[in-house]
Amino acid sequence: MSTTARATIHVDVPRADVWRAITDPDTIARYLFGSRVSTDWHEGSPIVYRGEWEGRPYEDKGTILEVVPGERLVSSYYSPLSGKPDVPESYQTVSYLLADDAGGTAVTVTQDGCADEAEAERMSENWGMTLGSLKSVVEQT
């Protein structure tokens, strides 16, 4: 059985601004630990995240599964740093969901396929930090 990580934050900018932030590689690098993202943002296309984590280079990957501009971005996700083999069962699904919220935007990230509640909690905390960084980036631009 797998569990799902979840984190939500309110940002004081319109959905269009958040959408740009989650699909612009230069902006992504500003809030996602310096990760450089490569993709064309079309359903079925590959997505690759490159960077360095704790002094080690990484290249995470997946496939864009769903794109609804201004509303939803869903991709599969695999990281060799997980220690799991690169097989379909090791891929997780990461979803960014945007909704109007009190003059701004509610941003929710879910990551399914966590092995247990402990992993889901760790991933939820990581996504909470990432969303805090996203909030800082989009609200200052």
Rank of each mutant, 00 (worst) to 15 (best):
W19Q: 09
I9G: 00
T110F: 05
T27R: 10
E125F: 09
D24A: 07
T63Q: 12
W127I: 03
S136W: 13
K61I: 00
Y58Q: 01
D86N: 11
G51A: 03
D17Q: 15
T27L: 14
L32P: 05
E52W: 05
A16D: 07
G70I: 08
Q111G: 01
R30V: 11
P85V: 01
G44R: 12
M129I: 10
V94W: 04
G83E: 03
D40E: 14
M123L: 05
T8W: 04
E71T: 14
E121N: 08
E54R: 15
H42C: 04
D86K: 11
S76K: 02
I47E: 02
D101H: 13
E117P: 01
R36E: 09
T108W: 02
R30E: 15
S95P: 03
D100L: 10
R56E: 08
P25A: 01
V109P: 01
Q92N: 11
L131E: 02
R36T: 11
Y96F: 15
M129V: 10
V107W: 06
R50Y: 04
W127S: 02
K61Y: 04
D40L: 13
K84E: 08
T3Q: 14
L134M: 08
V67N: 08
Q140L: 13
D116L: 09
T93V: 15
V68K: 15
V13E: 08
T4K: 04
D17T: 15
G55Q: 12
L65T: 06
A120N: 04
G104T: 03
R36G: 03
T8S: 13
V94C: 06
Y96Q: 06
V107S: 05
R15S: 14
K61R: 09
P57H: 05
D17M: 14
D17R: 15
G62R: 06
D101V: 04
L65R: 14
G62F: 11
L73Y: 11
G55A: 11
G103H: 10
G83T: 01
S76N: 00
A99C: 03
D112P: 07
V94K: 07
A106S: 13
K61Q: 03
V13Y: 12
D40Q: 14
E119S: 04
S38A: 10
